[in-house]
Design a protein around this nucleic acid. Structure first.
Lengths: 132, 132
DNA sequence: CGGAATCCATGTGGATACTG
DNA sequence: CAGTATCCACATGGATTCCG
């Protein structure tokens, strides 16, 4: 995406540590996290290697297309390793790489925060909606 | 969004600790994080109270509409406090609430991971794209 | 200044059908 | 089983205009 204002200034990419600049690599990774399925898929694979269909079954609501897309993205990023076993029918296993495993920790922290603040957030929303 | 399969089973909402169930509250919070601007806005407000226009200026590429929407969402969630000062022209300040501040830590962990693995991820992507 | 409201382009993602 | 390919609906979000 990137704003038109920075499209003309590619030099912004030279600021990897500042996610507030559009086009910054950090921002791109943040976007990845937020693609709705990535976090959940990593969570599943964190339990150990799993087949395509197993991940699909365990991530409620994900479509086959989105799972494929998510796994491809993670593989491309080097966070997931894809192993095709020449059996009939085909068997494909997915597992986190070392890098993928390191991502689990910050993700778990986020999940822990979510669970810890669920009630608080829900209450705030209810109050807000009641006011407005 | 939620899948049609679970739309008919509202009981799934009774599983707050399992984000793999569609409609689960934890998942909704994860969705929030991933809305592209929320994380950045929290990052800015983490530096201290800021006016609407200041946040707008510091988050490169955000539109006025998206900033308003993001701030409203955060306010509704109880993560940001909105203060309107009766001046002319109007002055509105935004600041993180206590809950909002607690969210900073997991977010910072994520940002730290991103920065630490930027090179690794970029290299993996380049290799992947070269192969395919 | 800080928004609200509207219009519209496009990206995301689901459903479906077909393949190795 | 594990995809690929297509079509299409809808949500996201930018640009613009107007208001208190």
């Amino acid at each position: 995406m990137v704003t038109t204002s920075t499209d003309t200034a590619p030099a912004d990419d030279a600021l990897p540590g500042n996610p507030y600049q559009a086009g910054c690599p950090t921002r791109r990774i943040l976007d990845r996290i937020g693609d709705r399925w990535t976090v959940l898929v990593i969570g599943i694979l964190g339990d150990g290697e799993a087949r395509f269909s197993e991940v699909r079954r365990r991530v409620d609501g994900i479509s086959q297309k989105m799972l494929t897309q998510t796994l491809r993205g993670l593989e491309r990023d080097g966070l997931v390793r894809r192993t095709v076993r020449a059996e009939v029918p085909v068997r494909v296993d997915y597992a986190l790489t070392e890098a993928g495993r390191t991502l689990q920790e910050p993700l778990r922290a986020l999940e822990a925060w979510s669970i810890a603040h669920l009630g608080e957030v829900a209450a705030s929303q209810a109050a807000y909606d009641g006011t407005v």
